[in-house]
Nucleic acid binder design. Structure first.
Lengths: 251, 251
DNA sequence: TTATTATTGTCGCAGAATGAGACAATAACT
DNA sequence: AGTTATTGTCTCATTCTGCGACAATAATAA
C-alpha cells in the first residue's frame, strides 16, 4: 500500500480511515504497442509499489477508489473495476514500510497504523496514457509508467496483484467484448486504425492474432464507426480511421 | 454479516478479529433441479441473512473463509471462490443488527463493534446438497436451504451479494469449463446421468439448452468417464452414468 | 510517368463448431 | 407383442474461424 497523504496524516494516524483496509491500483496505459502500469518509487529506497490509498469512514468503497485514483492520475470518469481482495498475512511485512518512512524522516512507533496488517482491495483501471498526469504521493518521489514486461521488483505481494489484474483484464476482454466502447476506449486515442486496435488486443492477450479474422470480427460486432482515411505518409494504402460508436443501447 | 460466535465473543468484542471486515457466503447447493443457497433466520425477527464470519488477526483471508464455511457446513475441501468485496455505506444499518441482538437478549452499547460499519468480502461456494449439515450460529435459530428463485427478504445488501455471486458463477461456468471436474462436481452426486448434468447447467444459466448439442459438447471435452447404465425403473431406455475423470493433468 | 514497396480491405475456401431436427435403440409397462 | 418415454447418435444446414490470396492504393524511387 502507498498513499496520497500529507506527513501530518501519516504521523497522526488514520482515524478518518477504515483501519486495516487499503486499496491498490493496477493502472493500465497503452503506448507504442506496450502495456504499461503506474508505479511509485519510494525515496532513497529503490522500492517500487503500486499506487494505493485508504477508505474514509464516511465513503463508499468504490467511491474511495475513484477518489484516490483521481488524486493519482488527475483523471475523472475513469474505467475502474474491482477485481480481487488480497488478505494473506505474508503480504504484511513491516520492514519495508518502516524503511520507507525512515527514509522520509519519520520514525514510526512499533505499532504505527501503517505498519500493521492490511487487507487490500485490488482495482484495475484503463486510462489514456497521454492524458494521465502521474502524481507522486508524499512518501514517494516518482510516479511513472513502467512496461508490464519489464517491471522493477515490487514490494510485498504487488507482483501477484499485477498478475491477477492482468488475468482479469484478459478474461474481461473476451467476456465484455460487447459494450467495449465504454471499455478499452481509454487505452486508445479517440480515433484509431484497425491495426492500432489489433495491436492493443495482441498486447493485452499476449499473443498474435490473424489480421483478416480480427478485422472481420471487429466489423461484424457493429461497435465501430468508420471515418475518413488516415494518410500517414507511408508508402502504402491509407487505412481507415475508426471510432467506437456512441449509441450502445444494444449490441 | 452473521457469525459463528459464542455470546461471550459477541459481548466482549472482536479483539481477535480484524475490525470492520467481514465475510459473507453464498453457498450454492443443487437439488431437484433447483439451485439453493444457505440462509440464516434470526431468532424472533423474521430477518434472513447470508452466513458470514470474521477474520482472525493471525489468519489469511482465504483461510478464514475456509474455516468459517467449514464451521457452517461441516464440510472441508469445499470449492470456494472469492468474487467481490462490498463496501457501500448504505449496507451498514445498525438497526436490524441491534434488533437481532436484542431479540437474543443482548443490549449492545451504542458503539458496539457489531453495529459499526463493515466491509464484507463475498465468497461463493459449491457444495453437495446431501452432504452439508447446516449449523445455525449463536444469533440465529435456523440455517437452511432456500430456493434461489424464492428467497425471503434479506437484510442489508445481501440480495445484491447473491445477485453478484450468481453472475460470477454463470461467467465462471463458461470460462472454466475445462477443469470443471474440480468444480461443479460438488453440486452433483458422484455419478450422474447426462440429463442430470444438463439440468444443472440449465438451472445455473437460467435457460434451456439443446439436448444433442449439450451431449456432444460434454463428450467432446473429454472430462467425463462413462460408467454402467442406470436402470431407473422408468419405461424407457436406461441412460449411462458418468463421472468426472480423475486425471486432469491437462484439458 | 512509370515501376516499386508496404500495407490495407476484402474475398474465398476448408475445417470446426453449433443449431435443429430425425431416428433407431431400449427399459419398463400394458 | 405393442406402447411409451427417454436416450445415444447421426445428419444437414448454418455459422464461425484459420489461413491464405489478391487487388487497391499511398508514398517513394527510377
Amino acid at each position: 500500500m502507498s498513499h496520497q497523504l500529507s506527513p501530518e496524516e501519516i504521523s497522526f494516524a488514520g482515524v478518518d480511515f477504515l483501519p486495516g483496509l487499503a486499496l491498490d491500483f493496477v493502472v493500465f496505459g497503452f503506448h507504442q504497442s506496450q502495456l504499461k502500469i503506474l508505479l511509485l518509487e519510494y525515496r532513497n529506497t529503490g522500492l517500487f509499489a503500486l499506487p494505493g490509498g485508504f477508505i474514509r469512514q464516511d465513503e463508499n468503497l468504490n467511491d474511495a477508489a475513484r477518489r484516490v485514483l483521481a488524486e493519482r492520475t488527475s483523471l475523472t470518469d475513469i474505467f475502474l473495476e474491482q477485481f480481487y481482495t488480497f488478505g494473506d498475512l505474508a503480504r504484511y511485512d513491516a520492514a519495508p514500510m518502516r524503511a520507507i518512512m525512515e527514509a522520509k524522516g519519520i520514525t514510526p512507533t512499533e505499532d504505527h497504523w501503517l505498519l500493521r496488517r492490511f487487507v487490500s482491495v485490488g482495482y484495475y483501471a484503463l486510462i489514456d496514457f497521454t492524458k494521465a498526469i502521474p502524481i507522486p504521493d508524499s512518501l514517494s518521489d516518482t510516479c511513472d509508467w513502467y512496461e508490464l514486461t519489464a517491471l522493477p521488483p515490487l514490494i510485498q505481494d504487488h507482483r501477484l496483484i499485477v498478475q491477477k489484474a492482468l488475468e482479469t483484464l484478459r478474461a474481461d476482454l473476451d467476456r465484455k467484448l460487447i459494450g467495449f466502447n465504454q471499455w478499452a476506449a481509454p487505452l486508445l486515442s479517440d480515433m484509431f486504425t484497425m491495426a492500432d486496435l489489433q495491436r492493443l488486443y495482441e498486447t493485452i492477450l499476449g499473443q498474435p492474432l490473424r489480421r483478416s479474422s480480427f478485422q472481420r470480427k471487429m466489423l461484424s460486432l457493429g461497435i465501430l464507426e468508420r471515418l475518413d482515411k488516415k494518410y500517414s505518409g507511408g508508402a502504402h494504402k491509407a487505412p481507415y480511421l475508426y471510432r467506437f460508436r456512441a449509441d450502445t443501447t444494444s449490441g
